[in-house]
C-alpha cells in the first residue's frame, strides 16, 4: 500500500459514514427547507418556510432563550470545572474516591439528570420540602420557580450538573499532561500563587477550556431531552420547536422544521467560528507580547 494513500484509506470508512449520514442529512434538511424534493416530485424552490418562521414571534423568542441557556450553561460549567480541576489536581486523602464521584455522572443520561433536577427543584420537590421543614417557606408557591420557569434555570442547572464534570475531567487530563515543571520554575523565579495561576496554569489550560466550551455550547444549543422535561411549553428551546413542527399534524410545517434546523446549524457554525477566532487571536496576542 503506497504510504501517501495510506491515511486516506484509513480514513475512508469514517468519512463515508460522516459524509453519507451526517452530510447527507444536513444537505437533505437544506433541500427540504426550500421545498426541493426531487424523489417526491417536488422541484420548485421556495423560501416560504424561512419567511414564515422569521415572521413568527415564537421563533425569535425561542432563539434568544436557546442562546441564553447555551451561554449561561457553558460559562457557569466551565468556571466550575476549572475550580474543580484545580482542587482535584494533586493527591490528598480520599483523592481516588472524590475523583471517582466526580466521574460518576459522566455515564448518567441527560434524561435521568433532568428527572433528578425535576424531583429536586420543583416547587413541591425535595428542596422545597426541606425549606418547609426549615421554616423558610410555608407552601409550595413560596419556593422560587426553578423548573418550567421563564429563565430556564432548571435546564441550565441540569446542563451545569452534567457538563461541569465533563469539562473538569478534560482540564484534569490536561493538567496531568503538562505536569508541574513550569509552575515550579515560576515559583523558583518568585511568582506568587496568583501570578503562577494567572501566567502559567491558566494559559496552559486555555486551549482545553476553549475546546471543551465549544463542545458544551454546541451540545446545549442543540439538545432536546432536557428542555422537553424541564422547560416551559412557551417559548420552547429551538430544537424542541423544530421537532414539534416536524411532527406536527400538518405536513406543511415540515419545511419550517427543516428551515429551523438549517438556521440552528448556521448559527452554531457562525458563533463557534467567531469564538475560536477570538480565542486564537487572543492567544496570538499573548504570544506576541512574549
Amino acid at each position: 500500500m503506497p504510504t501517501r494513500l495510506r491515511p486516506y484509506l484509513l480514513l475512508a470508512p469514517t468519512l463515508a459514514v460522516i459524509l453519507l449520514l451526517f452530510g447527507g442529512g444536513v444537505l437533505l434538511a437544506l433541500m427540504q427547507s426550500v421545498g426541493y424534493l426531487p424523489f417526491l416530485g417536488r422541484t420548485e424552490i421556495t423560501l416560504d418556510a424561512y419567511r414564515a418562521i422569521l415572521q413568527q414571534a415564537a421563533f425569535s423568542q425561542s432563539f434568544f432563550l436557546t442562546l441564553w441557556v447555551a451561554l449561561a450553561s457553558t460559562a457557569v460549567s466551565t468556571l466550575l470545572a476549572l475550580v474543580c480541576a484545580l482542587a482535584l489536581r494533586r493527591p490528598f486523602r480520599g483523592h481516588r474516591l472524590i475523583t471517582f464521584i466526580f466521574q460518576l455522572n459522566i455515564p448518567i443520561p441527560h434524561l435521568v439528570g433532568a428527572v433528578g433536577i425535576l424531583f429536586l427543584f420543583s416547587q413541591s420537590g425535595f428542596l422545597a420540602r426541606l425549606a418547609n421543614l426549615a421554616g423558610l417557606i410555608s407552601q409550595p408557591a413560596d419556593f422560587p420557580a426553578i423548573v418550567f420557569d421563564p429563565w430556564a434555570i432548571g435546564i441550565i442547572l441540569e446542563y451545569v450538573w452534567k457538563t461541569t464534570c465533563f469539562t473538569g475531567l478534560i482540564l484534569l487530563a490536561t493538567l496531568q499532561g503538562v505536569g508541574n515543571d513550569l509552575e515550579t520554575a515560576a515559583q523558583n523565579l518568585g511568582a506568587n500563587r496568583w501570578q503562577r495561576f494567572r501566567y502559567v496554569t491558566l494559559p496552559l489550560l486555555t486551549p482545553s477550556m476553549v475546546s471543551a466550551s465549544v463542545l458544551v455550547f454546541a451540545f446545549t444549543f442543540g439538545a432536546f431531552e432536557v428542555p422537553l422535561v424541564l422547560g416551559q411549553r412557551f417559548p420552547s428551546m429551538l430544537p424542541v420547536l423544530a421537532y414539534r413542527s416536524y411532527v406536527d399534524i400538518d405536513l406543511n410545517a415540515r419545511p419550517e422544521a427543516m428551515a429551523m434546523n438549517v438556521i440552528i446549524t448556521l448559527l452554531i457554525g457562525v458563533l463557534i467560528f467567531l469564538s475560536t477566532c477570538a480565542s486564537r487571536t487572543k492567544r496570538c496576542a499573548v504570544n506576541g507580547e512574549r
Binding site: G25, V26, A218, G222, A223, A242
Partner: peptide
Amino acid sequence: TIVPTLAA
C-alpha cells in the same frame, strides 16, 4: 459534535 445531530 457541533451541529445538532437531530437536524441531520
